[in-house]
Structures are given as structure tokens and as C-alpha cells.
Simulated scan of single mutants.
Amino acid sequence: MTLSLIALILLTGAPCSSATSLSHDFRYTYGCYESKDVRVDVLLDDDVCGYADFSKGEIVCAMPHLPDYLKPFTKRVYEIAEHAIEHCHSVLGKAKHADSGAALQQEAPGTSIYTRYEGEDGVLNTIFCLASHFYPPTINFTWTKNEVTITEGALDHRYRHNSDGTFHRISSLSFTPREGDVYSCTVEHQALRQPLTRSWELQKTRSSLTPAAVFLAVSLVLCLMGIGAGAFFFTKQSN
């Protein structure tokens, strides 16, 4: 079933100020789906700093170090998140009745694939598959190794908001590259006519010798051979 999303961006009040008098934009977004799920994200200067976990009954921090002046707000934000559930479904219901035949907005994703570190044969690494600027936020990642589907070591990270209302999401895979292996990430989204696939394989190690270096080495060997031959004949004639 196609999922519909109503996303509302609301300011929580005046921008927060730290002890250093630096002003920050502190707000939250929430969206609800026909599946009854609701997601609430807390944004600090347009970056997601936390999200509501309704199973734990708290705001989960998504930043390594949450500023101290924001910690007192987390309890209040969770209360807002709880109120958002009823309100969001109410808005979704009104929107469906207002224009039940309206086509759902769709934006197809762009994709890219890259690794955490430069690939080395036999060295543990992480490969990332990025799907960006898509809508609605429903997307599927599939990893394959040499055209065989793999799930071990794969992790789909949370959806992230973009400033234009679209979303991006990353899937990662922990792996140990070997020369000859081909890893692929396939992305499926309802706005795509066909799935997008990006592939990655370990680059073969190339010789570090340049043509000039090879010419120099050959010339040096020939020179040494000439000197050796000359010394041999000189010694022979002396005897």
C-alpha cells in the first residue's frame, strides 16, 4: 500500500541562546502515515539532533554531544511529540477528505556509493549507499556480492530531512574486500521506473614505476653491463 505523509514544520518558540549568546534555530517536524505510524524529529539549525522514541517514552539524542542548554527542553519536546500523534492524524484525515483524488507528490532519488577508507585487499572496511532527495520517505536497499544477495553486516540508517522537504537515507555494509569481488547496492522507490544499482570493486594495484623510471632502470642495467664487459676484456688483455 502506498504511504501518505503529512509533514508539518513548527517553531517551538523563540530561538534558544547559549551562555555565549549564540542564537540557534530549535524546532521540530512531525509526520504521520496511513499505517498509523508517527515520526517526530528535533532539529537544531536544520540538523537532526534527536527523535522521539515512543517505545522508550523519551527523546533519543542523535548528536555525539548535545549542548547542555538544550537538555532541559527534551522532556517538553517529548510532550509535544505525544500531542503530535492525535493532531497529525487529524490533519491527515482532513487532507484525504479535502482532495481524495489528488496524486501523491513523488520525487525519485539520486544514488551514490563510496567506502569509509580507501579499499585494501583483506582489510575490513565499510561501504555506504546514499539515496538522496526522494519523496515520499519509503525506500528499499538491497546489497549483493558477486550478484548474490547478502544481509550480514548491512544496516539501514534513519531517514533524514532535507531543507526542500525531501529526504535522504544511507545504508551501510561492513565487508572485507577481495580482488575480483563486486559489491552492488540496488535502490527501489515508487518514483523510479526501475531500480537503481551502483557497484563497487577493489581497484587492482598498479605498479608505482612510471615509464621514465623504467627507462632509467633499464639504462642503468645496460650501463652496468657495459662497465662489467669492459672490465672483463681489460683484465683479459692485461694477462
Rank of each mutant, 00 (worst) to 15 (best):
F175E: 00
T2E: 15
V38A: 03
D46H: 07
D121N: 15
C185G: 01
D45R: 06
A95P: 00
I59V: 06
Q237C: 09
K145N: 04
A108Q: 05
D45H: 06
T12A: 11
N125F: 02
R27G: 08
S132H: 03
A231Q: 03
N146S: 09
F215H: 12
T210C: 06
T235C: 14
F128L: 05
L92D: 01
R169C: 05
L92R: 07
F141C: 03
S199G: 04
S171P: 09
P109D: 04
S219K: 10
T126F: 11
V123C: 09
C61F: 08
M63C: 11
V77C: 01
L22N: 13
Y135W: 05
T115D: 04
L192I: 05
E179A: 12
A131P: 07
L196E: 14
T210E: 09
D156W: 04
Y69T: 00
S219R: 14
V38S: 02
G230T: 03
K71H: 11
A229E: 08
P15T: 07
T74V: 10
V60Y: 12
F175C: 01
P72H: 05
L202Y: 05
T149Y: 06
F234L: 11
P67F: 09
T144Q: 12
V214M: 06
H65W: 11
I9P: 03
Y51W: 12
L43F: 02
V42Q: 04
Y114W: 15
S207P: 12
D37L: 07
Q194S: 15
Q194Y: 11
V214F: 02
H87F: 08
P67N: 09
I113S: 00
V148N: 06
A108R: 02
E107I: 15
T149E: 14
V77Y: 01
V40S: 01
S17N: 15
Q105Y: 10
D37K: 10
Y117M: 12
L130A: 04
E34Y: 02
F54K: 01
E188P: 00
S35T: 13
R206D: 09
S55Q: 15
Y78F: 15
E188D: 12
P177T: 07
F175D: 00
C88A: 07
V214E: 04
Q105V: 09
H87V: 08
Y28H: 13
V221Y: 07
I113H: 00
M63Q: 12
A19I: 07
C185R: 00
S172Q: 14
S238Y: 06
I113E: 00
P195D: 13
K145I: 10
C61I: 14
T111M: 04
T149G: 03
V60C: 11
S199R: 08
S35Q: 02
S55N: 11
F26M: 08
T197I: 02
L224A: 13
C16N: 10
S132A: 07
L124T: 10
D164N: 05
N162L: 08
T29E: 14
D25I: 13
G180N: 11
F128W: 08
V42Y: 07
A131W: 02
L10A: 10
F134L: 10
A14E: 15
R76F: 10
P64Q: 10
A131E: 01
A7K: 01
K94M: 12
W143T: 05
H87A: 07
S17P: 01
L202E: 03
L216I: 09
F232G: 04
R116L: 09
L66D: 03
K36A: 14
L173I: 05
T74P: 01
T115C: 13
